[in-house]
Every structure is written in C-alpha cells, then in structure tokens.
C-alpha cells in the first residue's frame, strides 16, 4: 500500500508538472527568443538586447509589418463590435426562448465553432463571389463575425442564465419598457461575460489565418499571414519580437479576464 502511494504521488506530481512545463515552455521560449542579441534563431541565445524590437518599431524598414498590424487591429476591433451587436443580445434572448425553440436555435448559433474554419473560408469565398463580392477587408470582418461571434455568445450566455429575473420584473413593474430595461438593467449585469467574450473574439480574430486566407484581397495583408510568410521565406527574427508583443498582450488580457474565463464558470 505505502509503496503504491509513494509511486502514485511521484507519478502524479512529477509527470503532472512536467506535462505543464511542456505545455507552457514554447511560450517562454518565444518570449526569451524575442530578446536575443544574435542574428539567428539560436536557443538559448548568446546575449540579450532589444535590437529586434527596435527593428520591429522602425517605421521605414518594418512598414509592411505595420500595415499588417494596422489591418489586423481594425479587423479585430470591428469583429468584436460585430460580435457584441449580434451575439450579446442573442445570448440574452436565448435564455428567454421556449425549450423547443431554443433546441433548434442554440446548435445553429454554435455550429461555426465546430466547423473547420478553413472549410468555412472556402465556402464563404465561393458564396460571396457568386453574388459579386470580391475579397476585401469588410468581407474578412463579416467572415470573422460569423465564425467567432459564437465565442461571445457562449461567454454571455453563461452570465445571462444566472441573471436574477426579479430585477427585470421590478424594472417592468416600475413602468420601464422592455428595451430600456435591457439597456439599463440587463446589459450592465452582463459586462463580465461581454469582456471575456470580447477578449476571446479579439485574440481569435487577430490570430486567424484560414478565413483571412480566402477572404482578404492581395492588398489587405493581415498580421498572422504576414508572420506566416516571414517564417516560410526567411526566418526573420522580427517574428520573435512580434511574438513577444503578442504574448505580452495575452498575459495582460488574461490577468484581467482570468476570473470570468475559469472553466467552472464559463462551461
């Protein structure tokens, strides 16, 4: 018995933390690599410097990267806005549907999360081309709202289901209309879900390759595709600096959004 206990403990704690290290190590490697003083991707680096960050922020040499970052930020912000306008009210409305109706509506709203985004990108390209729409930045935003809106929906519905109906009833009894009640009472209560959803949608949109691949035109370069090309063509170390910036953004965002993103709460 005692032997089994000790072995069990060693396996669980030893292997467990080892596996956690495997999961997190690449993030640490990406962060350390971004401070290398060298010309190559040698790891561990021979020395540390901020030269690749300087190169990344150089307005002349890194102009194409800046354009890509600007495009991606625009797309991500507009996608979050679109997801907020469509998915947040839908999450609230879905909690007020009859069982039978919501059994049809729910899977349809969440379906884009299961479909490979690459297949959706191709489907959207073919469908939009058929009605005469050419690949462009607005089309990328539309595609991203369809594919990532459900993330906002899922984050909001977790909150909407726990809302206390008596608050709304009180508001209605006081003679406030349904729309104003939603705006003044329900919306503020859903803010944690909206923020968590916005963070998820923003990061996913910023990272998406497979939808942008099909829906962006040749002039609209987006950041992940640009990085992808830089990696494929030349292993440019500036990619490490971009990685450093993106990891920093996740770190800060996660620090604030952590409490709403815990699986016990959002699942």
């Amino acid at each position: 018995m005692a032997n089994g206990d000790r072995l069990y403990r060693a396996v669980v704690f030893g292997l467990g933390w080892l596996a956690v290290a495997f999961m997190v190590a690449p993030v640490a490697v990406g962060l350390v690599m971004s401070f290398t003083a060298g010309q190559t991707l040698k790891f561990p680096p021979d020395g540390f410097s901020l030269r690749w960050y300087t190169a990344l922020f150089d307005p002349v040499r890194s102009a194409p990267i800046h354009t890509a970052i600007w495009n991606s930020l625009q797309i991500a912000v507009l996608t979050v806005l679109g997801a907020f306008l469509f998915a947040m009210p839908a999450a609230y409305g879905a909690t007020r549907l009859k069982g039978k109706v919501s059994a049809i509506v729910e899977p349809l709203m969440l379906a884009p999360l299961v479909l490979p985004t690459l297949v959706y990108g191709l489907a959207a390209l073919i469908a939009f081309s058929n009605i005469g729409l050419r690949p462009s930045l607005p089309l990328v935003v539309l595609g991203h709202v369809v594919v990532f809106g459900p993330l906002m929906y899922r984050a909001c519905i977790a909150i909407a289901q726990r809302l206390d109906p008596s608050l709304e009833e009180a508001s209605t009894l006081l003679g406030v209309g349904a729309f104003m009640t939603f705006l003044r009472i329900t919306l503020p209560l859903m803010v944690p879900g909206i923020l968590a959803g916005a963070f998820l949608v923003f990061m996913q949109s910023l990272d998406n390759v497979s939808v942008s691949l099909f829906l962006a035109d040749a002039r609209t370069s987006v950041l992940p595709l640009r990085m992808f090309q830089m990696i494929e063509e030349s292993l440019d170390v500036r990619v490490a600096a971009i990685s450093g910036v993106l990891i920093g953004v996740v770190f800060v965002g996660l620090f604030f959004a952590r409490r709403v993103l815990e699986p016990a709460r959002s699942a």
């Binding site: 990406g30 991707l41 993106l246």
Partner: peptide, 12 residues
C-alpha cells in the same frame, strides 16, 4: 497565445 507564435517557438 497566437497559433503562429507557438508554431514559430517550435521552429526555434
């Protein structure tokens, strides 16, 4: 963290 970033870290 971006898929591209993680993939890049693995190249290193």
């Amino acid at each position: 963290v971006s898929n591209v970033v993680r993939t890049f870290a693995w190249i290193v």
